[in-house]
Structures are given as C-alpha cells and as structure tokens.
Amino acid sequence: MNYKSLLILISFLSLMGTRALAQDSAIERTFHESGKINVVVAVVVVIFIGLIFYFVRLEKKISKIEKDIKN
C-alpha cells in the first residue's frame, strides 16, 4: 500500500469516527425511505463498481503488454 492510499484510508476512517453533525442527515434518510430500496441500489452499484474495477485492472495489464511488444 503506498503513501497516498494510506492517507486516504486514514482520513476516511477518521471521518467515520467523527459523527456527522446532524443526527438524521439527508443521506441517511434516503436509505430508510420507501422500504429501504436505496440499500438495494447501493449494493448493485457496489457490485457494478467492482466489476468495472476488474476491467480497468485488466486493461492496464493489457496496455503494459502492448507496450512491451512495441519496444
């Protein structure tokens, strides 16, 4: 893990540690409205991002190989 991502992780954790100012912020409310449908949306989005992440990594590897062939 490099320095930058460690910094992001630490800042994220400290953000989680300090409670939000408002007790019931707008984001929280959206997750509880209408039968918590947005929890499902969040889950689907996470899976989608995960799959995209996989594609990006594969693409990086392929471009590296392409570069090697050219040289």
């Binding site: 989680m16 409670r19 912020s25 509880h32 929890v39 889950v43 996470v46 899976i47 995960g50």
Partner: peptide
C-alpha cells in the same frame, strides 16, 4: 478475492440497515 470483497462490502451495507440500531452513516 474480487467476489469476496464484493460480498463483504455489500453484506456490510445490507447489515447496517437491517440489523444495526446505529443508523447514522458516519460512525464505525
């Protein structure tokens, strides 16, 4: 491992809003 992480993160989100009493997002 990719699927394991996806399972963990989605599970965490789901658990937070069904089992937990702490509904505010910005706490651990």
């Amino acid at each position: 491992l990719l699927f394991a992480f996806l399972g963990l993160i989605t599970g965490m989100i789901w658990a937070k809003f069904t089992w937990s009493e702490h509904t505010d997002l910005f706490t651990t």
